[in-house]
Design a protein around this nucleic acid. Sequence first.
DNA 1: TATTTAACTTTACAGTGTTAATATTATATC
DNA 2: GATATAATATTAACACTGTAAAGTTAAATA
Lengths: 201, 201
Amino acid sequence: MGIKERRAREKEHLRQQILSAARELFVKEGYENVSMRKIANKIEYSPTTIYLHFKDKADLLDFVCQETLLNLLNTLEQLKSEINDPVETLRKSGRAYVEFGLKYPQDYKLTFVVRPQFQKGLGLVEGTIGEKVFNCLRETVSECIRQKIFRQVDVDTTSQVMWSAVHGVTLLLIDFPDFPWVEQDTLIDAVIRTTIEGLKA
Amino acid sequence: MGIKERRAREKEHLRQQILSAARELFVKEGYENVSMRKIANKIEYSPTTIYLHFKDKADLLDFVCQETLLNLLNTLEQLKSEINDPVETLRKSGRAYVEFGLKYPQDYKLTFVVRPQFQKGLGLVEGTIGEKVFNCLRETVSECIRQKIFRQVDVDTTSQVMWSAVHGVTLLLIDFPDFPWVEQDTLIDAVIRTTIEGLKA
DNA sequence: TATTTAACTTTACAGTGTTAATATTATATC
DNA sequence: GATATAATATTAACACTGTAAAGTTAAATA
């Protein structure tokens, strides 16, 4: 019965090959500029083979993004386990979030801007990794409120405010690289500090 | 010599026809899903005629976005002229900015997300309308600092923080309509209030 | 060995942005 | 009014795109 398993392994291997070729191309050339043929060429298979593993191009994007989110989730969860002070955790998480976006700008846009455009309805909802990322942030914020460091406003509102801030600065820095920004670190710090200050009791 | 003028008028008229057809389609179906042929069909011209008026599809997008920015600029400048208290102006401007984005979500994304992707390098820089929009915000922030209501941090940093916040919440609300947001007005208010509080002296 | 099943490829279709060459028109000149 | 000239619009074509359907090949089962 080892044959079936080997076959399954081979299938999974090809699937991973497709995914990593797709990610590489999406990131390098942008989702729109990558064709199924390009991906197929890269892995030396025919274009339609991809369709045996993924429903369509958007589906492929979806799985690429899930990997990205998993990556982000790991970064944030590790951070949380390392620090005790919730405010400090939040500050560091915010920085890590923005830095993640700037380190993999194409991945970030793919996940948080392009994907929702191509998969209307399927936001960050349900038991997805995206939800876990948000929940990670939410827990930290929750702790800040519990310890009465933050104003006693709704946990969700507070978390969503925080997310808005980091999402906003990340995208602006990615999308308008030629805008006369103040020093990048200064701006990121200011955004996070301002938001945290504004949330304090 | 009235003939040349009439000709110029006719030319301008067609140009406007193209622009408004493009805007309508871009907004309704999304930039990627609109072809030059579709635009041409709508105005009952051949596809290539468009190229006599615009360099390419991205150029067309560019002019559509400029109109959007002009629209936003008018909204914000009128607001500023109506109110005296700079903090109140800033609060209202923030709200107006987000509401503008939510009222014309496709236009907003086209201008602030899609366009930069398709015209790398040409951000919001130079003497464009986009710059004027930012300057409008900047002036209000500047007044808040001058009156010592805000902390004495760099005007640019402060303005950019404000922009990050409103940009972030706008895009999140547009892109993830199915996320379990708190009540929309509550969130927008919380974002703006938090940022302003965080900036205060 | 014959047949079924899985994996993959070839072919094809209807659509894309864009260019070059061509045709049509309206104006200016004789 | 006829002809040359300029402006404007169109047709045809190219090299792509995502993807469905049919065909091919190799391996597993009977």
